[in-house]
Amino acid sequence: MTRMIKCIASLALVHGLVACSGPQAPKATATTFKWVSSPPLILPQPDPDQTIYAVKDPSIVYVNGKYHVFMTTAGSSGWGLAYTSFDKWSEASSAKIIPLDKSPMGPGYRAAPQVFYFAPRKAWYLIYQGADPLYSTSNDMSDPASWTAPKPLFPTLPDIIKRPQGNGWLDFWVICDDRKCYLFNTDDHGRLLRSETGIDRFPNGFHNTVAVLNEKTEDLFEASNTYRIANTQTYITLVEAMSPKGRYFRIWKSNGLDGNWEPFSSTPMNTFASSENVEQLWSDGISHGELIRTNADQTMTIDPCRPLEYLFQGNDPAVRVSEYIKLPYRLGVIAAKGENPVSALCR
Score class of each variant (00 low, 15 high):
50 Q>N: 05
62 Y>Q: 01
77 S>Q: 15
22 G>Q: 15
62 Y>E: 03
14 V>Y: 11
27 K>D: 14
80 G>Q: 03
14 V>I: 15
56 K>G: 10
85 S>M: 06
45 Q>R: 10
55 V>E: 03
13 L>S: 13
70 F>N: 13
87 D>A: 15
17 L>Q: 09
100 L>P: 04
26 P>D: 14
32 T>P: 03
60 I>K: 01
83 Y>A: 05
70 F>C: 02
33 F>D: 02
46 P>K: 08
11 L>F: 10
75 G>R: 05
50 Q>R: 11
34 K>D: 13
91 E>C: 08
61 V>D: 03
82 A>N: 04
50 Q>F: 08
82 A>S: 09
40 P>M: 06
39 P>F: 05
70 F>R: 00
74 A>L: 12
87 D>L: 09
50 Q>D: 09
69 V>C: 03
89 W>Y: 10
31 T>H: 14
100 L>M: 05
60 I>T: 08
94 S>Q: 15
69 V>D: 04
94 S>A: 14
78 G>M: 05
53 Y>C: 11
67 Y>I: 00
34 K>V: 07
28 A>V: 12
58 P>T: 09
57 D>Y: 06
32 T>W: 00
76 S>L: 04
102 K>T: 12
58 P>I: 00
95 A>T: 01
103 S>N: 05
72 T>E: 13
28 A>R: 11
81 L>S: 02
54 A>I: 10
96 K>I: 11
27 K>T: 08
96 K>E: 14
72 T>G: 12
23 P>Y: 08
39 P>A: 09
14 V>C: 15
70 F>T: 08
91 E>H: 12
43 L>P: 04
58 P>R: 03
80 G>I: 03
45 Q>G: 08
20 C>F: 14
35 W>E: 06
16 G>V: 03
27 K>C: 06
86 F>A: 00
41 L>Q: 12
42 I>G: 01
11 L>W: 04
40 P>N: 06
84 T>E: 07
88 K>E: 08
83 Y>F: 07
20 C>T: 10
77 S>H: 12
33 F>C: 04
23 P>R: 14
13 L>F: 06
58 P>H: 07
79 W>S: 08
102 K>D: 13
103 S>Q: 06
54 A>V: 00
22 G>A: 15
103 S>V: 11
87 D>T: 15
75 G>M: 05
